[in-house]
């Protein structure tokens, strides 16, 4: 591990932690909490002193695996995103890597939902799978459209390809679809039915103490990562006047993240029994059309 990569790794951990905390605080503030800046700390304190509990014959191995998998997937997905000047993992297939790590969340939620042996988490876990079947294909097509525009699966190349015009300008459909799927990936806000109040909190309904803390931290980290990925993919990465690259990346990430958190309070939940049809019949053809347009543009 050379020095540059080491610095990138450290800045990744720090920025992920800071942004996740900020997202939690912002959400608490929008959610009507007083002293929102300290709210996530208080919540963490509460969960640290909270007793551990166990439901009736749970499959503890699966529950723990799923709980820890959530922050792990977020972290691994983040490795290909340039936090400072360069990513920790400058992979030639960065986009596919991001996609693969984010899909691991399917496993995480299902494992927790199934493992605790309780009806509401079980329903939540299956809801997330149904959600996955709906958002994943439009999401992949959006990513492929980006790769097509850049002619590469390396995220650095994607950023470089936006030197003149950001992808969001000529791939608006892909960008919007990406944002919808970002909400769905992080099961956030309108796409938060897997953890909805109508199933008593869904997947993490039976988690308390440290388990719940790790799960919640993982979820916020995931939200940060999906927001941060929009920046190199669609918003030109660190490009911008006056400020250095890392600052622009930070500004854009905060803007996208703030938008996602805001949407979480402002839009009602979307049920998959209605969204699936919309995703397959409207979103997929629409993103494919976008892909076609981009494919024709990039032809020599």
């Amino acid at each position: 591990m050379d020095e540059g990569t080491g610095a990138a790794a450290v800045s990744l951990v720090v920025s992920l932690a800071v942004l996740a905390y900020g997202a939690a605080a912002l959400d608490a503030g929008l959610g009507g909490a007083r002293g929102a800046a300290g709210a996530p700390l208080r919540e963490a304190a509460r969960l640290l002193v909270q007793g551990r509990r166990r439901t009736l014959v749970p499959d503890t191995l699966l529950v723990r695996t799923g709980t820890v998998l959530l922050p792990l997937a977020a972290l691994l997905a983040a490795t290909v995103l340039p936090a400072g000047d360069r990513p920790v993992l400058d992979s030639g297939v960065g986009i596919v890597w991001f996609n693969a790590m984010e899909v691991c969340v399917w496993g995480a939620l299902w494992l927790v939902g199934w493992g605790v042996n309780s009806v509401y988490p079980l329903i939540g876990g299956y809801r997330f799978l149904a959600q996955g079947l709906s958002y994943e294909l439009p999401h992949m097509f959006a990513l492929i459209t980006v790769a097509l525009g850049a002619g590469s699966l390396r995220i650095a190349d994607v950023v470089a390809a936006q030197r003149e015009v950001w992808f969001v300008v000529w791939m608006p459909v892909a960008f919007v679809v990406y944002l919808v799927s970002a909400l769905a990936m992080a099961f956030w806000g309108p796409m938060g039915e897997p953890v909805g109040r109508n199933v008593a909190g869904g997947v993490p309904a039976e988690l308390s103490g440290a388990d719940r803390l790790v799960f919640a931290a993982g979820r916020y980290a995931l939200l940060v990562v999906v927001a941060a990925a929009a920046v190199p993919l669609f918003l030109g990465g660190g490009a911008g006047p006056v400020l250095p690259g890392w600052a622009w990346t930070a500004v854009k990430t905060v803007a996208v993240l703030g938008g996602l958190v805001l949407v979480g309070q402002r839009v009602p939940a979307v049920r998959m029994d209605r969204f699936t049809e919309f995703a397959w019949v409207v979103l997929i053809p629409l993103t494919l059309l976008q892909t076609l347009v981009v494919a024709i543009v990039v032809l020599p």
Partner: peptide, 10 residues
């Protein structure tokens, strides 16, 4: 500014 719980575990 308390947020209501949906399940006993939380």
């Amino acid at each position: 500014g308390w947020v209501a719980a949906a399940a006993p575990a939380e």
